[in-house]
Amino acid sequence: MRHPLASCLLVATLCLSSTLVSAAETVLIVLSGEGRDAGKTRPGYEFDELSQAWLIFKANGLAVEVASPQGGAVEADRYDANEPFNAALLADTDAMRQLADTRRTDALDANDYAAIYVVGGKGAMFDLPRDTALQQLIARAWEAGALIAAVCHGPAALVDVRLADGALLVAGRRMTGFSNEEEAIFGKKWASDFPWQLEDAAAARGAIWDEAPLMMPKLVVDGRLITGQNPYSTTAVAEAIVRGLGRAPVARTLWRDEATMALVEQLRDGDVGSAHAALAQSPTHYHADLIGILGYYLAQAAGDDAVALRAALQTMQLALPHMDEPRLKLAAADAHLRLSERAEARALVLQVLEATPGMEQAEALLQRIDG
């Protein structure tokens, strides 16, 4: 028969072991609680950035907990519930239970988590930077050896984190996040209300900022600090967390938006023919609309940079055969004109006018071309 003291030691050992396993395998996901009306009256968090990361964490055997500054239910900005990763999360009863009753950041113990992952969305620019409990939680987790990760606007939670010695967490470390260029294009509704621009705030605090072209995926890993530039960087961030915890991410099929951005990167690397062939062969495997919209905004951001404008035009040209959208043709025509390719520009405008006679935007562009 086991001695009573041995039994007590065994119980204590098992309890300690359970705690250590939990800490070693648990990722805390932090969400903004700012959102209202699916982002219409107040921005919240990005559901895609939650769902994709959650599914990767769970597929790799990690436990997940969810927190927000005020706790309770949190609201995401508008998203597509039919995307497979979102549909999968919506069907996960544990996920829905946690989202309906998130934990308060001021009620958490940093030692319970091997990693903290901060989801973006414009709401993250409002409540996360002013959450001192979150800053203290991140600092304690960092000093305990945890991974600290954030994507898109999520790094707003990191810029004012001070460690025990008073040093800023981000000072002298490489990082990324939603860039000034991206904010200028996509942040017009709320950016004027932000406390600061994320890129500017990070740089002012001594971070070494690193970014990719507009909305292209970008992962930056500096030791235990892991950041991603925009929503299309989510899976890279999640898998970097998995690797940082000593696991090899399980093989998986890319989701459509991932495959789409990989196709755009292939195009930007000069493999134009293969990119067109891949999209033509498997159009349902990609988001042609995403490619077209990306090209449209890349052209807006290009300004007088001919190289950037050419890349934007090539992106639009990749989508054009798969999108019945006259405004995309006109944007491509405008890019041709800015590159002094009047014949190509005119041909596209005439195609639009043939399909939509009298379209004012097309008529005005034709006058510019012929003027």
Score class of each variant (00 low, 15 high):
residue 365 L to Y: 06
residue 352 V to S: 10
residue 288 A to Y: 03
residue 59 A to D: 05
residue 64 V to F: 00
residue 79 Y to D: 04
residue 17 S to G: 15
residue 142 W to V: 05
residue 9 L to T: 08
residue 128 L to M: 02
residue 302 A to L: 01
residue 288 A to T: 00
residue 70 Q to V: 11
residue 37 D to S: 15
residue 170 V to Q: 02
residue 324 D to C: 07
residue 129 P to H: 00
residue 208 I to D: 12
residue 189 K to R: 14
residue 367 Q to C: 04
residue 132 T to M: 11
residue 16 L to Q: 12
residue 337 L to K: 15
residue 224 R to G: 01
residue 336 H to A: 11
residue 359 M to G: 09
residue 60 N to T: 09
residue 231 P to F: 12
residue 367 Q to R: 15
residue 366 L to S: 05
residue 201 A to F: 00
residue 44 G to A: 03
residue 134 L to E: 08
residue 241 I to V: 14
residue 131 D to Q: 03
residue 266 Q to D: 11
residue 268 R to W: 15
residue 126 F to C: 01
residue 130 R to Q: 12
residue 228 G to D: 04
residue 3 H to Y: 07
residue 363 E to Y: 02
residue 280 A to N: 13
residue 209 W to I: 06
residue 119 V to N: 00
residue 229 Q to P: 05
residue 298 L to K: 12
residue 370 D to Q: 14
residue 226 I to P: 03
residue 62 L to T: 00
residue 89 L to N: 01
residue 94 D to N: 09
residue 334 D to K: 15
residue 6 A to H: 10
residue 359 M to F: 14
residue 284 T to F: 08
residue 47 F to D: 07
residue 124 A to C: 07
residue 325 E to H: 13
residue 218 K to P: 03
residue 200 D to P: 03
residue 314 Q to H: 12
residue 360 E to G: 05
residue 111 N to I: 01
residue 44 G to N: 02
residue 26 T to H: 09
residue 76 A to W: 03
residue 181 E to W: 00
residue 51 S to L: 02
residue 163 L to F: 08
residue 271 D to K: 13
residue 242 V to I: 05
residue 242 V to E: 10
residue 320 L to Y: 09
residue 80 D to Y: 00
residue 160 D to K: 08
residue 144 A to W: 01
residue 131 D to Y: 08
residue 125 M to T: 02
residue 77 D to H: 06
residue 284 T to S: 14
residue 341 E to R: 15
residue 69 P to A: 04
residue 243 R to H: 05
residue 66 V to E: 11
residue 1 M to C: 10
residue 288 A to I: 01
residue 346 R to G: 13
residue 103 R to I: 01
residue 192 S to G: 13
residue 295 G to R: 03
residue 136 Q to Y: 03
residue 85 F to T: 10
residue 313 L to N: 02
residue 14 L to P: 11
residue 223 G to A: 08
residue 63 A to M: 07
residue 276 H to K: 12
residue 43 P to M: 01
